[in-house]
Nucleic acid binder design. Structure first.
Lengths: 149, 149
DNA sequence: TCCAATTTAATTTTATACAATTTTATTGTA
DNA sequence: TACAATAAAATTGTATAAAATTAAATTGGA
Protein backbone atom coordinates (compact mmCIF):
# COMPACT_ATOMS: atom_id res chain seq x y z
CA UNK A 1 0.00 0.00 0.00
CA UNK A 2 1.12 3.57 -0.71
CA UNK A 3 1.98 5.89 2.14
CA UNK A 4 -1.04 8.03 1.40
CA UNK A 5 -3.34 5.01 1.62
CA UNK A 6 -1.71 3.88 4.85
CA UNK A 7 -2.58 7.23 6.46
CA UNK A 8 -6.32 6.68 5.95
CA UNK A 9 -8.22 5.83 9.12
CA UNK A 10 -10.12 2.92 7.63
CA UNK A 11 -6.90 1.25 6.55
CA UNK A 12 -5.35 1.36 10.00
CA UNK A 13 -5.37 -1.63 12.30
CA UNK A 14 -4.47 0.59 15.26
CA UNK A 15 -7.46 2.85 14.78
CA UNK A 16 -9.74 -0.20 14.52
CA UNK A 17 -8.46 -1.47 17.87
CA UNK A 18 -8.74 1.98 19.43
CA UNK A 19 -12.31 2.54 18.22
CA UNK A 20 -13.39 -0.98 19.19
CA UNK A 21 -12.16 -0.52 22.74
CA UNK A 22 -14.26 2.54 23.26
CA UNK A 23 -17.39 1.15 21.64
CA UNK A 24 -17.06 -2.06 23.67
CA UNK A 25 -16.61 -0.08 26.87
CA UNK A 26 -19.88 1.68 26.14
CA UNK A 27 -21.62 -1.71 26.04
CA UNK A 28 -20.37 -2.43 29.56
CA UNK A 29 -21.43 0.90 31.04
CA UNK A 30 -25.11 0.14 31.73
CA UNK A 31 -24.35 -3.39 33.00
CA UNK A 32 -21.57 -2.23 35.31
CA UNK A 33 -23.60 0.70 36.56
CA UNK A 34 -25.79 -1.82 38.40
CA UNK A 35 -22.69 -2.95 40.29
CA UNK A 36 -21.45 0.61 40.84
CA UNK A 37 -18.31 -0.07 38.81
CA UNK A 38 -16.47 1.38 35.83
CA UNK A 39 -14.83 -0.89 33.26
CA UNK A 40 -11.34 -0.40 34.68
CA UNK A 41 -12.59 -1.11 38.20
CA UNK A 42 -14.31 -4.22 36.83
CA UNK A 43 -11.20 -5.67 35.18
CA UNK A 44 -9.28 -4.96 38.38
CA UNK A 45 -11.78 -7.09 40.27
CA UNK A 46 -11.58 -9.77 37.55
CA UNK A 47 -7.86 -9.99 38.25
CA UNK A 48 -8.42 -10.15 42.00
CA UNK A 49 -11.12 -12.81 41.72
CA UNK A 50 -8.52 -14.95 39.97
CA UNK A 51 -5.72 -14.17 42.40
CA UNK A 52 -6.22 -12.40 45.68
CA UNK A 53 -3.66 -10.65 47.89
CA UNK A 54 -1.30 -9.34 45.24
CA UNK A 55 0.94 -6.28 45.16
CA UNK A 56 0.06 -3.19 43.18
CA UNK A 57 3.01 -3.97 40.92
CA UNK A 58 1.78 -7.49 40.12
CA UNK A 59 -1.73 -6.20 39.52
CA UNK A 60 -0.31 -3.55 37.23
CA UNK A 61 1.58 -6.15 35.18
CA UNK A 62 -1.55 -8.24 34.86
CA UNK A 63 -3.68 -5.29 33.73
CA UNK A 64 -1.00 -3.35 31.83
CA UNK A 65 -1.59 -0.38 34.13
CA UNK A 66 0.85 1.56 36.31
CA UNK A 67 0.57 2.89 39.85
CA UNK A 68 -0.47 6.30 38.59
CA UNK A 69 -3.70 4.73 37.42
CA UNK A 70 -4.07 1.98 40.00
CA UNK A 71 -3.38 3.89 43.20
CA UNK A 72 -6.41 6.18 42.99
CA UNK A 73 -8.55 3.39 41.54
CA UNK A 74 -7.70 1.02 44.38
CA UNK A 75 -8.35 3.74 46.95
CA UNK A 76 -11.77 4.16 45.36
CA UNK A 77 -12.48 0.42 45.58
CA UNK A 78 -11.27 0.53 49.18
CA UNK A 79 -13.66 3.36 49.98
CA UNK A 80 -16.44 1.24 48.48
CA UNK A 81 -15.51 -1.57 50.85
CA UNK A 82 -14.53 -4.00 48.06
CA UNK A 83 -10.80 -4.31 48.70
CA UNK A 84 -8.30 -3.73 51.51
CA UNK A 85 -4.89 -2.11 51.05
CA UNK A 86 -2.17 -3.19 53.48
CA UNK A 87 1.59 -2.82 53.52
CA UNK A 88 3.50 -6.07 53.20
CA UNK A 89 5.10 -6.54 56.64
CA UNK A 90 8.05 -8.37 55.07
CA UNK A 91 8.74 -5.58 52.58
CA UNK A 92 7.03 -2.34 53.42
CA UNK A 93 7.50 -1.01 49.89
CA UNK A 94 4.78 -3.35 48.68
CA UNK A 95 1.11 -2.60 49.10
CA UNK A 96 -0.95 -5.78 49.10
CA UNK A 97 -4.47 -5.71 47.73
CA UNK A 98 -6.98 -8.18 49.15
CA UNK A 99 -10.65 -8.67 48.50
CA UNK A 100 -13.07 -8.04 51.33
CA UNK A 101 -16.01 -10.41 51.84
CA UNK A 102 -18.12 -7.86 50.02
CA UNK A 103 -15.62 -7.76 47.16
CA UNK A 104 -15.71 -11.52 46.86
CA UNK A 105 -19.49 -11.53 47.00
CA UNK A 106 -19.73 -9.09 44.09
CA UNK A 107 -18.45 -11.85 41.80
CA UNK A 108 -21.85 -13.50 41.94
CA UNK A 109 -23.53 -10.37 40.65
CA UNK A 110 -20.94 -10.05 37.88
CA UNK A 111 -20.91 -13.63 36.61
CA UNK A 112 -23.56 -13.04 33.97
CA UNK A 113 -21.79 -10.07 32.39
CA UNK A 114 -19.35 -11.84 30.04
CA UNK A 115 -22.15 -13.82 28.40
CA UNK A 116 -24.35 -10.74 28.10
CA UNK A 117 -21.56 -8.83 26.38
CA UNK A 118 -20.58 -11.57 23.94
CA UNK A 119 -24.20 -11.81 22.94
CA UNK A 120 -24.23 -8.06 22.19
CA UNK A 121 -21.03 -8.32 20.15
CA UNK A 122 -22.88 -10.56 17.73
CA UNK A 123 -20.00 -13.02 17.33
CA UNK A 124 -20.17 -16.78 17.66
CA UNK A 125 -18.14 -18.31 20.50
CA UNK A 126 -15.63 -19.55 17.91
CA UNK A 127 -15.26 -16.17 16.21
CA UNK A 128 -14.82 -14.45 19.56
CA UNK A 129 -12.16 -16.96 20.64
CA UNK A 130 -10.29 -16.64 17.37
CA UNK A 131 -10.23 -12.85 17.56
CA UNK A 132 -9.23 -12.95 21.23
CA UNK A 133 -6.32 -15.28 20.43
CA UNK A 134 -5.18 -13.10 17.52
CA UNK A 135 -5.15 -10.06 19.79
CA UNK A 136 -3.38 -11.98 22.56
CA UNK A 137 -0.71 -12.96 20.02
CA UNK A 138 -0.35 -9.33 18.98
CA UNK A 139 -0.05 -8.26 22.61
CA UNK A 140 2.70 -10.85 23.08
CA UNK A 141 4.55 -9.67 20.00
CA UNK A 142 4.50 -6.08 21.23
CA UNK A 143 5.67 -7.16 24.67
CA UNK A 144 8.57 -9.18 23.28
CA UNK A 145 9.77 -6.32 21.15
CA UNK A 146 9.49 -3.78 23.92
CA UNK A 147 10.60 -5.51 27.11
CA UNK A 148 13.39 -7.84 25.95
CA UNK A 149 14.55 -7.62 29.62
CA UNK B 1 -17.43 -22.30 28.69
CA UNK B 2 -18.57 -22.13 32.33
CA UNK B 3 -19.36 -18.78 33.88
CA UNK B 4 -16.31 -18.98 36.12
CA UNK B 5 -14.03 -19.53 33.12
CA UNK B 6 -15.66 -16.65 31.26
CA UNK B 7 -14.75 -14.27 34.09
CA UNK B 8 -11.02 -14.93 33.67
CA UNK B 9 -9.11 -12.07 32.04
CA UNK B 10 -7.24 -14.25 29.58
CA UNK B 11 -10.47 -15.68 28.25
CA UNK B 12 -11.99 -12.30 27.54
CA UNK B 13 -11.98 -10.80 24.07
CA UNK B 14 -12.86 -7.39 25.51
CA UNK B 15 -9.85 -7.31 27.79
CA UNK B 16 -7.59 -8.32 24.90
CA UNK B 17 -8.86 -5.37 22.85
CA UNK B 18 -8.57 -3.01 25.82
CA UNK B 19 -4.99 -4.07 26.64
CA UNK B 20 -3.93 -3.99 22.97
CA UNK B 21 -5.13 -0.43 22.57
CA UNK B 22 -3.00 0.81 25.40
CA UNK B 23 0.11 -1.12 24.42
CA UNK B 24 -0.24 0.07 20.83
CA UNK B 25 -0.66 3.67 21.97
CA UNK B 26 2.62 3.35 23.84
CA UNK B 27 4.33 2.43 20.56
CA UNK B 28 3.10 5.67 19.02
CA UNK B 29 4.18 7.92 21.89
CA UNK B 30 7.87 8.37 20.95
CA UNK B 31 7.10 8.76 17.23
CA UNK B 32 4.33 11.30 17.81
CA UNK B 33 6.39 13.20 20.34
CA UNK B 34 8.57 14.37 17.45
CA UNK B 35 5.48 15.94 15.90
CA UNK B 36 4.27 17.34 19.21
CA UNK B 37 1.10 15.24 19.05
CA UNK B 38 -0.74 12.71 21.20
CA UNK B 39 -2.42 9.68 19.65
CA UNK B 40 -5.90 11.21 19.79
CA UNK B 41 -4.63 14.43 18.23
CA UNK B 42 -2.93 12.34 15.54
CA UNK B 43 -6.07 10.40 14.55
CA UNK B 44 -7.98 13.69 14.47
CA UNK B 45 -5.47 14.98 11.94
CA UNK B 46 -5.70 11.70 9.98
CA UNK B 47 -9.42 12.35 9.64
CA UNK B 48 -8.85 15.95 8.56
CA UNK B 49 -6.15 15.01 6.03
CA UNK B 50 -8.78 12.80 4.41
CA UNK B 51 -11.55 15.38 4.58
CA UNK B 52 -11.04 18.98 5.50
CA UNK B 53 -13.57 21.56 6.67
CA UNK B 54 -15.94 19.33 8.60
CA UNK B 55 -18.15 20.01 11.60
CA UNK B 56 -17.26 18.85 15.08
CA UNK B 57 -20.22 16.50 14.88
CA UNK B 58 -19.03 14.86 11.67
CA UNK B 59 -15.51 14.57 13.04
CA UNK B 60 -16.93 12.99 16.18
CA UNK B 61 -18.85 10.39 14.18
CA UNK B 62 -15.73 9.54 12.22
CA UNK B 63 -13.60 9.15 15.34
CA UNK B 64 -16.26 7.79 17.70
CA UNK B 65 -15.65 10.76 20.03
CA UNK B 66 -18.06 13.37 21.38
CA UNK B 67 -17.80 17.12 21.78
CA UNK B 68 -16.71 16.75 25.39
CA UNK B 69 -13.49 15.19 24.14
CA UNK B 70 -13.13 17.02 20.84
CA UNK B 71 -13.78 20.60 21.92
CA UNK B 72 -10.73 20.93 24.17
CA UNK B 73 -8.61 18.81 21.81
CA UNK B 74 -9.46 21.00 18.82
CA UNK B 75 -8.78 24.14 20.83
CA UNK B 76 -5.36 22.69 21.59
CA UNK B 77 -4.69 21.98 17.92
CA UNK B 78 -5.88 25.50 17.14
CA UNK B 79 -3.45 26.97 19.68
CA UNK B 80 -0.71 24.96 17.96
CA UNK B 81 -1.64 26.57 14.68
CA UNK B 82 -2.66 23.29 13.01
CA UNK B 83 -6.40 23.87 12.58
CA UNK B 84 -8.87 26.75 12.47
CA UNK B 85 -12.28 26.71 14.15
CA UNK B 86 -14.99 28.83 12.52
CA UNK B 87 -18.74 28.98 12.88
CA UNK B 88 -20.69 27.87 9.83
CA UNK B 89 -22.26 31.10 8.53
CA UNK B 90 -25.24 29.16 7.16
CA UNK B 91 -25.94 27.47 10.50
CA UNK B 92 -24.20 29.08 13.42
CA UNK B 93 -24.69 26.01 15.58
CA UNK B 94 -21.97 24.20 13.64
CA UNK B 95 -18.27 24.74 14.21
CA UNK B 96 -16.25 23.94 11.11
CA UNK B 97 -12.75 22.62 11.48
CA UNK B 98 -10.24 23.37 8.74
CA UNK B 99 -6.57 22.59 8.41
CA UNK B 100 -4.12 25.49 8.30
CA UNK B 101 -1.19 25.38 5.88
CA UNK B 102 0.93 24.20 8.79
CA UNK B 103 -1.60 21.50 9.58
CA UNK B 104 -1.54 20.28 6.01
CA UNK B 105 2.24 20.37 5.95
CA UNK B 106 2.48 18.15 9.01
CA UNK B 107 1.17 15.26 6.92
CA UNK B 108 4.56 15.00 5.26
CA UNK B 109 6.25 14.49 8.60
CA UNK B 110 3.66 11.88 9.59
CA UNK B 111 3.60 9.78 6.45
CA UNK B 112 6.25 7.35 7.67
CA UNK B 113 4.48 6.55 10.92
CA UNK B 114 2.01 3.85 9.79
CA UNK B 115 4.79 1.77 8.25
CA UNK B 116 7.01 2.21 11.31
CA UNK B 117 4.22 1.03 13.60
CA UNK B 118 3.22 -2.00 11.53
CA UNK B 119 6.84 -3.06 11.55
CA UNK B 120 6.88 -2.87 15.36
CA UNK B 121 3.67 -4.88 15.61
CA UNK B 122 5.50 -7.80 14.03
CA UNK B 123 2.61 -8.75 11.74
CA UNK B 124 2.76 -9.33 8.02
CA UNK B 125 0.73 -6.95 5.86
CA UNK B 126 -1.78 -9.75 5.29
CA UNK B 127 -2.13 -10.58 8.98
CA UNK B 128 -2.57 -6.91 9.84
CA UNK B 129 -5.23 -6.44 7.17
CA UNK B 130 -7.13 -9.53 8.27
CA UNK B 131 -7.15 -8.43 11.91
CA UNK B 132 -8.13 -4.89 10.91
CA UNK B 133 -11.06 -6.21 8.86
CA UNK B 134 -12.20 -8.50 11.68
CA UNK B 135 -12.20 -5.56 14.07
CA UNK B 136 -13.97 -3.33 11.56
CA UNK B 137 -16.66 -6.01 11.24
CA UNK B 138 -17.00 -6.15 15.00
CA UNK B 139 -17.28 -2.36 15.16
CA UNK B 140 -20.04 -2.52 12.55
CA UNK B 141 -21.90 -5.21 14.43
CA UNK B 142 -21.83 -3.14 17.62
CA UNK B 143 -23.00 -0.07 15.75
CA UNK B 144 -25.91 -1.90 14.12
CA UNK B 145 -27.10 -3.29 17.43
CA UNK B 146 -26.82 0.02 19.20
CA UNK B 147 -27.97 2.67 16.78
CA UNK B 148 -30.80 0.99 14.84
CA UNK B 149 -32.04 4.59 14.29
C1' DT C 1 28.29 -1.31 59.06
C1' DC C 2 27.51 2.39 55.81
C1' DC C 3 25.65 4.12 51.92
C1' DA C 4 24.83 4.21 46.92
C1' DA C 5 21.82 1.94 43.79
C1' DT C 6 17.53 -0.07 43.19
C1' DT C 7 12.68 -0.98 43.93
C1' DT C 8 7.91 0.19 44.88
C1' DA C 9 4.09 3.39 45.63
C1' DA C 10 2.44 7.71 45.58
C1' DT C 11 2.09 12.24 43.63
C1' DT C 12 1.92 15.70 39.98
C1' DT C 13 0.87 17.12 35.48
C1' DT C 14 -1.25 16.75 31.09
C1' DA C 15 -4.51 14.67 28.16
C1' DT C 16 -8.15 11.81 27.13
C1' DA C 17 -13.13 9.88 27.59
C1' DC C 18 -17.90 10.29 28.51
C1' DA C 19 -22.35 11.28 31.02
C1' DA C 20 -25.12 15.03 32.16
C1' DT C 21 -26.22 19.69 31.83
C1' DT C 22 -26.22 24.29 29.80
C1' DT C 23 -26.07 27.58 26.06
C1' DT C 24 -27.07 29.12 21.65
C1' DA C 25 -29.14 28.60 17.19
C1' DT C 26 -32.48 26.71 14.14
C1' DT C 27 -36.81 24.69 12.73
C1' DG C 28 -41.60 23.59 12.70
C1' DT C 29 -46.04 25.10 13.64
C1' DA C 30 -50.03 27.36 15.58
C1' DT D 1 -44.58 36.29 14.53
C1' DA D 2 -44.21 33.67 18.84
C1' DC D 3 -42.61 29.68 20.84
C1' DA D 4 -42.00 24.80 21.74
C1' DA D 5 -39.09 21.23 20.09
C1' DT D 6 -34.87 20.05 18.31
C1' DA D 7 -29.90 20.26 17.30
C1' DA D 8 -24.97 21.32 18.01
C1' DA D 9 -21.19 22.86 20.99
C1' DA D 10 -19.52 23.87 25.13
C1' DT D 11 -19.16 23.12 29.99
C1' DT D 12 -18.95 20.44 34.27
C1' DG D 13 -17.78 16.54 36.92
C1' DT D 14 -15.76 12.05 37.40
C1' DA D 15 -12.62 8.57 36.00
C1' DT D 16 -9.02 6.87 33.46
C1' DA D 17 -4.04 6.80 31.43
C1' DA D 18 0.78 7.60 31.38
C1' DA D 19 5.17 10.32 31.84
C1' DA D 20 7.97 12.38 35.23
C1' DT D 21 9.13 13.19 39.82
C1' DT D 22 9.25 12.23 44.76
C1' DA D 23 9.38 9.46 48.97
C1' DA D 24 10.25 5.49 51.49
C1' DA D 25 12.17 0.94 52.03
C1' DT D 26 15.39 -2.54 50.79
C1' DT D 27 19.53 -4.51 48.98
C1' DG D 28 24.22 -5.09 47.71
C1' DG D 29 28.68 -4.22 47.99
C1' DA D 30 33.04 -1.62 49.91
Amino acid sequence: MKQDELLKLDNQLCFAVYACTREITKLYTPLLKELGLTYTQYVTLLALWEKDRVSVKELGQRLYLDSGTLTPLLKKLESQGLVARTRDSRDERNVLISLTDEGRKLKEKACGIPMAIVRQLGLSAEEAEKLRDDLADLLNKIQLRHQPT
